[in-house]
Computed example of a mutant assay.
Amino acid sequence: MAFATIQYFSRSLSKASAFNVIFPDDPAIPRPWSTFYLLHGLSDDHTIWARRTSIERYVQDMPLVVVMPDGGRGWYTNAAEGYAHEDDLIRDVVGLVDRTFPVKAEREGRAIGGLSMGGYGAVKLGLKHHETFCSVNSHSGAIAFLRSDPAENRKLSPEFERIFGKEPKGGPEDPFAIVERIDHGRIPAMRIDCGTDDFLIQHNRDFHKFLEDRRIAHEYQEFPGDHNWAYWDQHVQEAVAFHARNLKLKP
């Protein structure tokens, strides 16, 4: 596989930004390729997945591009006051990848996943832009973040109110509320996992029950582990296999 850092000007952020990308370098791998957008957590950037996991090895010889964008501390959301990180990913990054790489520029060719803040972002964006992604995964996702105690949220993310406003529960960035508003037949394939010692375990259990109560098909698993890279490096391998099935990639 080949690895590159793409420097680009984000029109949504009005600033320079970057993403890392892994893509096939074997001419025998057929084109067009599918794309997996892999999102980082609150304290990291676009370099972290390649530095802390073996993601390049896990997708070796697959007709798959892995795009790792820089979401800052923006929760992959167009802030009420601040940067438009959702537009940056959906318009600027996806648009640039679709135009530049020999990929399937359609729903059936795109997947999205992430951890923690990126798990929230993947679920939120996958639901909100269900015409863009065919499958979604979340590791240790802060999926119920907007339904938690605002004071506790501000401790974790001081940007909380500036990004989401004063009453985000039930709003356009709340994954629970998005599910209620969209056609359930268009919900992407979903896989959610979390470590049993993770401080976000209840977020994941609550969303799992919410989906179960509405008979929305999804995969949900809990494993031994905490909110750390040992857990994510192990379980991103299952996410890759999940997306490969839904993207219909040949083994």
Rank of each mutant, 00 (worst) to 15 (best):
R51H: 05
S54R: 14
R57S: 07
D61F: 02
D61P: 03
P63F: 10
V65C: 12
V66Y: 00
V67I: 03
V67M: 02
D70C: 08
G74L: 13
W75E: 08
T77I: 05
N78S: 14
E81A: 13
Y83I: 10
A84W: 03
H85F: 15
H85T: 12
D87T: 15
L89Q: 14
D92E: 00
V93E: 04
V94N: 03
G95D: 03
V97F: 01
V97I: 04
D98V: 02
R99A: 14
T100N: 05
F101D: 10
V103M: 00
E108S: 14
E108T: 11
A111P: 01
A111E: 05
G114C: 13
L115V: 13
S116M: 05
S116F: 06
G119M: 06
V123E: 09
G126W: 01
L127M: 06
K128N: 11
H129P: 01
F133Y: 02
S138E: 11
I143W: 07
I143L: 12
R147I: 02
D149I: 01
D149E: 01
P150G: 06
R154S: 13
S157R: 11
S157T: 06
I163G: 12
K166N: 07
E167R: 14
K169T: 13
G171V: 10
P172V: 01
P172Q: 06
F176G: 03
E180R: 14
I182Y: 11
P188E: 04
A189S: 15
